[in-house]
């Protein structure tokens, strides 16, 4: 589904991603954990094609097609979706109207059926019920006057409507109380299929109590320093990121040296030629 090979990316000439390797297969859910500022959102934005970021080297393949240089709308049409960490207000643009425009643009590109207002409205009503969102919100301007929880749920709603192959969810749990986290998690679970993959970015282990990841990766300072199964998330929760940060610094000191010895229960990305995979 998604293959990231030695991805380097920068913003304003500052390198943020320093060689990310990752392979996500169809049907898998990968969690990416990391402290603030480690480059999680950068990775999400780079994958979605935000123009302010520059990919300086590496490859990003979605179903074998290189996405580097592809316009964000074409990535969306190819089946990629980004749930924003901080969904913004868009004054004067109605949610239902904009989402129908997106839906139809994607369907048109795929030569699938486009929907008129009436049919789309029916679809939207169904999806709002599915993610537990108030239908009236879809007739408002995008995120205008929405609470933090409503904004996040709105992202999940859009994912439900657009039915992407690969969803990148950038901290869909941040700023939410535990009930709201559970609701968002439920939405994510309902949308999981054997064909679709999810990259779930999170700072805390909390949401992983409700969403079962196949793999967990720890991102520190623009690199994946450790990968594992869901126990790795518990380890992060128990120990914090300090130990992983120390490990990343060690990587930095010996960039051309042989890979570090393999730790217990973890897989160093540099040991895996093609990208970090689970323990399998």
């Amino acid at each position: 589904m998604l293959e990231i090979r030695d991805l380097h990316a920068s913003i304003n000439d500052v390198e943020i991603l320093k060689g990310v390797n990752l392979t996500v297969n169809a049907g898998e859910l990968h969690a990416i954990m990391g402290p603030n500022g480690s480059g999680k959102s950068t990775l999400a934005f780079v994958l979605a094609g935000k123009p302010t970021y520059a990919i300086t080297s590496g490859q990003v393949l979605l179903e074998g097609v290189d996405m580097v240089g592809m316009a964000p709308e074409n990535r969306a049409r190819a089946g990629l979706f980004l749930s924003f960490q901080q969904p913004m207000e868009i004054p004067g643009v109605r949610l239902d109207q904009f989402l129908r425009a997106g839906y139809n643009a994607i369907h048109k590109a795929r030569r699938e059926e486009e929907l008129d207002v009436l049919k789309f409205d029916r679809l939207l009503t169904r999806k709002t019920k599915m993610v537990g969102m108030e239908a009236a919100l879809t007739r408002r301007y995008v995120n205008e006057g929405f609470s933090g929880g409503e904004r996040k749920r709105n992202e999940i709603l859009q994912m439900a409507v657009l039915e992407p192959k690969l969803s990148i969810l950038d901290e869909p749990d941040s700023g939410l109380d535990i009930d709201a986290v559970r609701i968002v998690a439920q939405g994510i679970n309902q949308l999981r299929t054997p064909q679709n993959s999810v990259l779930l970015i999170t700072h805390y282990q909390r949401i992983l109590n409700y969403v079962q990841p196949d793999y967990v990766h720890v991102l520190i300072n623009g690199r994946i320093v450790q990968s594992g199964d869901k126990d790795l998330a518990l380890q992060v929760e128990a120990e914090g990121y300090d130990r992983f940060e120390a490990k990343e610094q060690a990587l930095d000191l010996s960039p051309s040296c042989p890979p570090l010895p393999k730790g217990e229960g973890d897989v160093s990305p540099s040991l895996l030629g093609k990208g970090a995979r689970g323990l399998g």
Binding site: E73, A76, R77, P87, I90, P91, V93, F98, L162
Partner: peptide, 28 residues
């Protein structure tokens, strides 16, 4: 540019996204 990217990330072409944003600006 952030709003423009948001709309484009949902599949809207750049022109269509700009059109929506500009119309939204005038909506009031």
């Amino acid at each position: 540019p952030d709003a423009l990217f948001y709309l484009r990330s949902r599949g809207l072409s750049e022109a269509a996204a700009k059109g929506l944003l500009v119309r939204g600006f005038a909506a009031g």
